[in-house]
Structures are given as structure tokens and as C-alpha cells.
């Protein structure tokens, strides 16, 4: 086992080009990631939470080299993905797989399950026909499906079963890292639990480390040891999941925690920051929404820094205690 972390993401920046509004104006630019760094140690699953537009899905794609950042690096066990030659990157993909949100869109409707699940093996050009079938069967059984399901088409399965097929596909190369982008959001509550338990099992038994991306704090808390909260392309707080949600240091984390529906109390709404709506500042990106913002927050952007006495880092001038 190498000393390098399983996944290391260094100062990622990504800006999307927007369509022109007229032929004479330059393309607009929308920053998706504005300098994101973190690392994941093998065996310690991490979560990323944030609202739409926070850049979390962009981060997932770049972490798997499905998209290129404008700058920054991604290293899997110390090997920089964007500096590798094509064929080596392809071989490395066996160690990192992905689970997608939509169990309807992520399986090719015109292929049989056997071919879908075997796709990562086919991409490696590894394993003969017989071995492939055997591994597909083993992978399907590992996620609680039957080996005989291999000859069916995706439309013959329910949403929850389809998500299992997608998980079986991600597992077939026995990857070390699995990036899961909203893996249970599209599933019914009664089926979500099956998928979450399966993910827990995979962590413990198959040694899979997850990078779990979700808007649902409860889902992330269920799987991940460490969690990062993203807001507008930056990590605003990162730390051990339980403490992070138990005692948020960043006002945005607190807003998320309060807003999450629970059985034991109504959702709470953060006090509105009156009169600063749509405010563009050079300071903290959250300042326009923050009920605790002071004049410094509007002028200077805080960096992600260690909080004294807490196993936590937050990007806030006035962290909550």
C-alpha cells in the first residue's frame, strides 16, 4: 500500500463557457469550481453536499477525469490523471468507477444487463468470454440480483433494481474508489434504504471507498466519515461528518442543517439577510445570504482555514461556535 492518499484533488478551477447572447458579445463565463482541494484516504468515505450550482457534480466528473479542469490536478494513489498517457488513464479507470443519479438514464436501453455490467471489463479488454460471464454473475449476486438477470433488458427492472445493476457495473473491476453522484435521490424511500445498506456493505466487505455527492445530508451522514460543504464552487467547511452537522461552524452549513426536513421538528429557515439580495461582492460569496455577515465579509473573501481546537476547517471570518 502506497503512502499517497487514495484520491487527492488540488486547487481545481473550472469555468464553463455560456452560449453567446448575441453574435457580437463575448461568451459569458460561469465559474463552476473556484479552487477546490481535498483528499480522501483509502477506507474513509467522503461526502460532498451543496445546492444545485455549487459545483459538486462538476467536481465528481473531474475527479474521474471525465472532464478537464482549467487548472489544478487530480491524483489517484499519487498518479496525476491529467498527465497520464491515454492508454494508462484507461487502464487506471479500473480502479475508479462511477454511479449515477438516474437509474433510467444510466443504462443503455438497447443492451442486455450482461453487456451493461461487463462494460468496464470490455473497456479494459480483459477477461475472456467465460470469465466475463462469471464475473458478471458474481457482481450481480453481490448487489442482491440473480445471475439469471444478466440476460434481461433494463426496462424489465424497477428503479431500485436498475440502480443495483449500475452498482454491479461499477463494482465489476473491484475498484478502490467509487464516485456516486446522488445515487439514491431518484429512488422511492422504501427502495433508498436497500441501496444505502448495500453501499455500507460494500465499504465494509469489498473495501470500496466512496466519494458520495448528494444534496441530502442524512444520506451523506449515513455513509461518509468526512464531509465537505460546497457553496458556489468552493468548499466552505470540511470535517468529520457527525461534528460538522452537529455543530456547524459555517453559517451556510447551519442553514443546510436547519433546512433539512426531520420527523422531530419543522424545518427551520435561516433569518433572511434583508436588502443584500443579488449583491455582488469581492468578499465572501455567501455574504449576500448570510444573516451573520459583517462589513469585513463583504470586502474580503475568507480562506479555508483550521478552526482552533476543532477537527475542522471552515472558510468564514466569524465561525459559529
Amino acid at each position: 500500500m502506497s503512502e499517497a492518499p487514495l484520491l487527492e484533488v488540488v486547487d481545481l478551477v473550472k469555468t464553463y463557457r455560456l452560449p453567446r447572447t448575441s453574435p457580437f458579445t463575448p461568451h459569458g463565463r460561469r465559474p463552476a469550481l473556484a479552487g477546490v482541494s481535498f483528499s480522501i484516504v483509502a477506507g474513509h468515505s467522503s461526502g460532498i453536499v451543496g445546492e444545485s450550482g455549487s459545483g459538486k457534480s462538476t467536481l465528481a466528473r473531474i475527479a474521474l477525469a471525465l472532464d478537464k479542469p482549467d487548472s489544478g490536478a487530480v491524483r489517484l494513489e499519487g498518479r496525476s490523471l491529467f498527465d497520464l498517457p491515454h492508454h494508462e488513464l484507461r487502464a487506471l479507470r479500473a480502479h475508479m468507477q462511477m454511479i449515477f443519479q438516474d437509474p433510467y438514464g444510466s443504462l443503455d436501453p438497447r443492451q442486455r444487463v450482461e453487456r451493461i455490467v461487463a462494460e468496464p471489463l470490455a473497456a479494459l479488454g480483459a477477461a475472456g468470454r467465460a470469465e466475463r460471464s462469471a464475473r458478471v454473475a458474481a457482481s450481480l449476486e453481490a448487489v442482491g440480483l440473480r445471475a439469471s438477470d444478466a440476460s434481461k433488458y433494463p426496462h424489465e427492472f424497477s428503479g431500485g433494481q436498475r440502480q443495483r445493476i449500475a452498482i454491479a457495473r461499477a463494482l465489476i473491476t473491484r475498484p478502490k474508489l467509487v464516485v456516486a453522484d446522488e445515487p439514491v435521490s431518484a429512488l422511492d424511500v422504501s427502495v433508498q434504504a436497500q441501496a444505502l445498506n448495500l453501499m455500507s456493505d460494500l465499504q465494509q466487505q469489498a473495501g470500496v471507498t466512496f466519494l458520495l455527492i448528494s444534496h441530502d445530508l442524512a444520506v451523506v451522514a449515513h455513509i461518509c466519515e468526512t464531509t465537505a460543504v460546497m457553496y458556489r464552487g468552493r468548499i466552505v467547511e470540511i470535517g468529520p461528518t457527525e461534528e460538522l452537522f452537529g455543530a456547524p461552524a459555517h453559517p451556510y452549513t447551519r442553514e443546510l442543517v436547519d433546512a433539512t426536513p426531520r420527523f422531530d421538528r419543522p424545518t427551520r429557515v435561516a433569518p433572511a439577510a434583508e436588502g443584500r439580495n443579488g449583491l455582488e461582492t469581492t468578499g465572501c460569496p455567501y455574504a449576500a445570504r448570510c444573516a451573520f455577515a459583517q462589513s469585513r465579509c463583504l470586502k474580503e473573501a475568507p480562506d479555508l482555514e483550521d478552526l482552533a481546537g476543532r477537527a475542522r476547517r471552515a472558510a468564514c471570518w466569524f465561525p459559529l461556535t
Binding site: R61, L64, L66, L89, R90, A91, R93, A94, Q97, M98, F100, Q101, D102, G105, S106, L107, D108, P109, R110, Q111, I116, E119, P120, A122, A123, L124, A166, R169
Partner: peptide, 26 residues
């Protein structure tokens, strides 16, 4: 734009094999 095409890339497939296996049949 569908996720299964992205999944194929994540699995390490090249453009040509994605074209033949996923795009053309669909």
C-alpha cells in the same frame, strides 16, 4: 448527453467503441 454514454466513458471506453456500442444502436 445520456448518463449511459458518460458511464461508458467512466468505464474507460474510447470514442469509437462508444459510437458502435451505444450511439449507433440508439
Amino acid at each position: 448527453a445520456r448518463e449511459y454514454a458518460l458511464a461508458a466513458r467512466a468505464a474507460g471506453r474510447g470514442p469509437l467503441s462508444i459510437a458502435f456500442d451505444h450511439v449507433l444502436p440508439n
